[in-house]
Nucleic acid binder design. Structure first.
Length: 386
DNA sequence: GAGATCACG
DNA sequence: ACGTACGTGATCTCG
């Protein structure tokens, strides 16, 4: 936090010097005038209101044109950490308990997920080095206690396999294969998968869950891939996973007929725009038709597990957080050995998936939410990658 | 209070 | 040609 306070100011000063004058780095409007007006840099993209975009993606594309850009990106990262997480979380410490208490909303997210607010504890940083420091600040509440985190591995892709019944995907999960490597092998027609090929396959796999488009794939894979090549990857994917292709088409057709998408347990989301005259709106509705059953079934599953575990783990352990596919408890270190297998069993068995798709849960234990070590449990003797 | 941005799954 | 991946919440600026 001390470091954040210092380096953030330093970056602001540096940016003003590089710009040749002071300006408000937090104002996208002032920034756009500077970058695209005075400095004459090329506009990458417009926001929905027609203003030139200055988000990270747009700035990255300009990084080689002006040294100000990199400073700006570093400033943004630190500013976010300082104000949203540093100052924000400190403000949220309860004066009586000394802890941070969030509110979980159960009727906000259209897919059936929970959401967390005041403060949001479902979006604590983890991706960057400085961000990770904030996770380290989340610790068990009393001496001798530890945090235990259990997360579903690849749960949405497993649900996609189960709902679609795609033979290839089913076989991959049953065989315990690294799913992104297996996809890469099929997309590129080789057994020797490079890290780059795996990265692309991983992005395609995620894209499938969301209703992929060629343009969207190009955007997320960055340069080096043309729109045509992206389309070829998508075509190849559907060629090799025909069950997924059929599932998507069937899902869209069903929503057209019934007006809603539903999860494995029958939770409904009405999607009226499926009949929209507007092409973009209709395409958006079709993506919802694809994604909602998958994301929503995962939400159903973890909620069932939470209910069953509430009975079994009270009062030995306290459930602290749910982060969509992860549950975090605090408990005495002495009960971990006894409780962990129970957690794995209840989470894995909470909602049996069609086609006997295996569900895997990984358990980690540690003194804080960052430094956690895997725990060997019965059903995870063979740790499979992701 | 809307828009832009960015943190997470 | 079009607009462009699903779900959230917090923070800042600006009219």
């Amino acid at each position: 936090m001390r470091t954040l306070r210092r380096s953030w100011k330093k970056l602001e000063k540096e940016a003003h010097q590089l710009a040749g004058k002071p300006f408000n780095l937090n104002s996208p409007k002032q920034l756009a005038e500077l970058l695209f007006g005075e400095l004459g840099l090329p506009v990458q993209r417009k926001t929905p209101t027609g203003q030139p975009a200055t988000d990270e993606e747009a700035l990255q594309a300009l990084a080689h044109l002006h040294p100000l850009i990199e400073t700006l990106l570093r400033y943004r990262e630190l500013y976010k950490l300082r104000y949203t997480y540093g100052e924000g979380l400190l403000r949220s410490i309860h004066p009586k308990t000394g802890r941070i208490h969030t509110v979980f909303q159960q009727a906000v997210a259209a897919t059936g997920r929970l959401s967390s607010q005041n403060p949001n504890l479902q979006n604590i940083p983890i991706r960057t080095e400085q961000g990770k420091a904030f996770r380290r600040a989340f610790v068990a509440g009393q001496p001798g206690w530890v945090l235990l985190s259990a997360d579903y591995s690849q749960i949405e892709l497993r649900i996609a396999a189960a709902l679609s019944g795609d033979p290839q995907l089913l076989e991959d999960f049953r065989a315990g294969r690294d799913i992104h490597t297996a996809t890469a092998q099929r997309l590129f027609g080789t057994h020797d998968v490079t890290p780059e090929m795996r990265r692309i396959a991983k992005t395609v796999n995620f894209g499938i869950l969301y209703g992929i488009t060629a343009h969207g794939l190009v955007q997320r894979l960055g340069g080096g891939l043309s729109r045509t090549e992206a389309q070829q990857l998508i075509d190849q994917y559907f060629h090799r996973y025909p069950g997924i292709k059929a599932y998507i088409e069937k899902q869209i057709a069903r929503v057209r007929e019934t007006g809603y998408a539903e999860t494995l347990l029958g939770r409904r989301r009405y999607i009226p725009h499926i009949h929209s005259q507007n092409k973009a709106q209709r395409a958006e509705a079709e993506r919802l038709a694809i994604n909602t059953p998958i994301q929503g079934t995962a939400a159903d599953m973890i909620k069932l597990a939470m209910i069953r575990l509430a009975e079994k783990l009270t009062p030995q352990a306290h459930l602290l957080l749910q982060i969509h596919d992860e549950l975090v408890w605090e408990m005495p270190a002495s009960v971990v050995e006894e409780v962990a297998p129970l957690i794995v069993q209840e989470m894995e068995g909470a909602l049996p998936l069609p086609h006997q798709v295996p569900v895997e849960v990984e358990v980690k234990v540690g003194p804080n939410w960052l430094d956690m070590s895997p725990l060997q449990t019965q059903s995870s003797k063979l740790p499979s990658k992701e």
